[in-house]
Amino acid sequence: MRRQVGNLVLMTALLASITPSASGPAGKIRVVNEGGIRDAWMLPQGATLPVPAYPQMHARARAEVCVTIGCLLNPDGTTSDFALLKGWSAAEPAKDRDADWAAFAKDAANALAHWRFLPRPGVRQPMPVYTVATFLFGSNAPATLRKRCAINDVGLRLAELKRDGKARQRMAGQDIFDRLDIEPRNSKAAEWRPHRGGSTQPAPIHPAPGEPGSAG
């Protein structure tokens, strides 16, 4: 059965200490959509972005899976404060869903922890920014699979999660979400109601950075 993860937030450990820095209204950290950091950040020359391998525990099935991981891009160009914000699987199991999603989220976070960026020339004081990265596993049609995990408005997605009881509990204690500029910018966030079908609430995971692999 093909299932989409509805309202979930899967936390990982803090992988880098950060210094709070105002970059939005009232000292809030700016939130941008995937790819939205390119106005102020770039890759070091010759650098590549590590991607996760297919989790070994699920290698036999190799169902198509995608996960979208939220993260903080720190002023020093490192990433931290990872959270699974959205996911989809072509074959989500009926049991042990938490462990299933944790495996993919952990490997994605491990890869993301190795990403490094440099401020673009002319950016004198780099500011922290919160964004997302989408990872594909076992994809036969990458463009189609990527759409299943696409978050068109990251700020709105976070606002939606904060309005869901279970997701809000998982966000509690993670001060990063209190520091983000995710106040509703339109009526859609105010009118949002939790989606009940096919949702799941994985338990927190705490991966340490692993060696980068290659997805396939």
Rank of each mutant, 00 (worst) to 15 (best):
A215H: 04
A40E: 13
V129D: 13
V32H: 04
N33M: 03
E34F: 05
W115E: 14
V9A: 13
H114Y: 00
R3D: 14
H195W: 03
Q169S: 13
G24Q: 02
M57L: 11
R148I: 09
P20E: 02
A53P: 01
C66P: 03
W41D: 08
A203H: 08
K95F: 07
A99P: 12
I205S: 05
L72H: 06
L156G: 01
S21H: 09
A26W: 05
D153W: 00
G216V: 04
A26N: 14
I182V: 12
N7K: 09
R60G: 01
L8P: 10
D164Q: 15
W41G: 08
A22T: 02
P20S: 10
P25V: 02
R97E: 09
A59T: 06
D98Y: 10
A203I: 07
A13S: 14
D81K: 04
Q56D: 13
A40G: 04
W41A: 04
A103D: 14
A143W: 07
S89G: 14
G122I: 05
L73C: 12
L49E: 10
T68I: 10
F137G: 01
C71V: 04
G77L: 11
R168M: 12
T131V: 08
S187V: 15
E64W: 11
T144M: 10
S214G: 03
A103I: 12
I205M: 08
R2S: 03
K166W: 11
T79Y: 06
T68V: 13
L180G: 06
A172W: 13
T134R: 06
L112H: 01
G155D: 01
K106L: 06
E64G: 06
S21Q: 13
L161H: 07
I151P: 07
A113R: 05
T144K: 07
A91R: 02
F135L: 03
L112R: 00
S187M: 12
P128F: 08
D76C: 15
